[in-house]
């Protein structure tokens, strides 16, 4: 046996192990510093729970069911907002994505313009859009739908470009080689291949938008969020807690539904 035989063998180089160590240390330091700066005290968070539960028990329970009619209307509004915005966004995004995919639209300029446009839309939160749009259009679901569309188009366009890109790489060339024009190739080969991906991302956005529409509703975009905010402002916590429950139920129901649809479409 050679003297080295008992030494443990490393599977990665020394440099990369050291880099990983430094990275983890830096992360830990950053975490500690940010916690300190936000004055977040874990101990206090745990000890103050009593207040929290008292508040819940005294004010939120039992949920007040008397206004179920208004609640149902608001819940439906929220669902409509989510569905409408996801649907309209999907249609717009499909169109945009074709122009953003290099294999399909040959102009690099157009590709980058679409990508830049999408990422600007995506990186400004829906809440900000609502504040801007409420100033212009006033309070209401219209603003909610508009704000959701803006964010969703940004997100979906990006996802759809990736879906198309992957397909185009394999199929586009083979079909172009037959002498077919780009439009028939898109409708007969690219679209059918892309549809499962399109649907899957669309359903994901429906889920996101349900949650988002409840939140942006609170700042004036209508639906159940607006209702809930109204109750909270009136210190009517029992009614607010019904609204919160309703949001939870909707989110869970929609999740179950989209899972089911995903299985059905094979997406």
């Amino acid at each position: 046996m050679s003297p080295d035989a008992r030494k443990k063998l490393a599977l990665a180089s020394r440099e990369s192990r050291r880099a990983a160590l430094i990275f983890i240390a830096a992360l830990a330091a950053l975490f500690a510093a940010s916690t300190w700066f936000t004055k977040f005290n874990p101990l206090h968070a745990i000890l103050a729970q009593e207040e929290f539960w008292k508040f819940i028990a005294a004010d939120f329970v039992p949920p007040y069911m008397g206004k179920w009619r208004a609640l149902a209307d608001a819940a439906l509004q929220t669902m409509y907002m989510a569905l409408a915005s996801a649907g309209i966004s999907a249609a717009l995004s499909v169109l945009l994505a074709f122009f953003g995919t290099p294999g399909i639209c040959r102009s690099r300029m157009v590709n980058s313009a679409v990508r830049a446009f999408a990422s600007i839309l995506r990186n400004i939160p829906a809440l900000v859009w609502v504040f801007i749009l409420v100033a212009a259009y006033g309070i209401g679901t219209e603003v909610g739908v508009l704000a959701l569309i803006i964010g969703t188009v940004g997100f979906l366009t990006r996802c759809y470009i990736e879906t198309l890109d992957e397909i185009a790489e394999r199929n586009l060339e083979a079909l172009k080689a037959t002498g077919a024009g780009i439009l028939p190739v898109i409708s007969q080969a690219i679209l059918p291949a892309a549809i499962p991906g399109f649907i899957s991302w669309f359903l994901y956005c429906v889920e996101l938008n349900i949650r988002a529409s409840a939140i942006i509703g609170m700042v004036g975009a209508g639906g159940i969020g607006l209702l809930m905010m109204g109750y909270i402002k009136q210190y009517n916590y029992a009614a607010a807690s019904t609204a919160i429950l309703a949001v939870a139920i909707i989110v869970i129901a929609v999740n179950l539904l989209t899972d089911c649809l995903r299985k059905l479409t094979g997406a």
């Binding site: 079909l175 037959t178 002498g179 077919a180 024009g181 439009l183 028939p184 190739v185 409708s187």
Partner: peptide, 10 residues
């Protein structure tokens, strides 16, 4: 596809 009109192909 290459032999068909754009509409028929689409």
């Amino acid at each position: 596809l290459g032999y068909m009109s754009t509409a028929a192909g689409v």
